[in-house]
Design a protein around this nucleic acid. Structure first.
Length: 115
DNA sequence: CTGATGACGGTGC
DNA sequence: GGCACCGCCATCA
């Protein structure tokens, strides 16, 4: 599976996040296994607005929307998550112990050479 | 090829 | 628990 760039593979992992769940940048990086959390952030920053990647399900380690916050996109991310049942506390944070993604099944990783 | 550009996270105080 | 540093790395012009 080297037909796609590293960014493409990062997006592939993000597509595995189920509705109503969120993952952190570091978690995505750990699954892909060839980059740091920051690189995942860079990959998301490169996305277009018409992408099919559910980028809104990715938040930082604190369960907060990191995005160029304050902007309209931050509002959209929160709106999309709430529409999927994810709740935010008074500090705009998501309870990762409740909505955090457990990660892809091991057989998925094997199928994608990420094991 | 060189330099600029970013959606982060761990550590130490 | 918060804040300041620093490390990290693929893309693109």
């Amino acid at each position: 599976m080297k037909t796609h760039s590293l960014y493409e593979r990062i997006y592939e992992v993000i597509r595995q996040i189920p509705v109503g769940r969120v993952a952190t940048y570091g978690q995505i990086a750990a699954i892909v296994g060839e980059c740091g959390a920051r690189t995942v952030g860079y990959a998301l920053a490169a996305l277009r607005s018409d992408t099919s990647v559910p980028w809104h399900r990715v938040v930082n380690r604190q369960g907060k929307i990191s995005l160029r916050a304050h902007g309209s996109e931050g509002q959209e991310q929160r709106a999309r998550l709430e529409a999927e049942g994810v709740t935010f506390d008074s500090d705009h944070r998501i309870d990762l112990s409740q909505f955090g993604w457990v990660g892809p099944k091991s057989d998925w990783r094997v199928a994608h050479g990420m094991i």
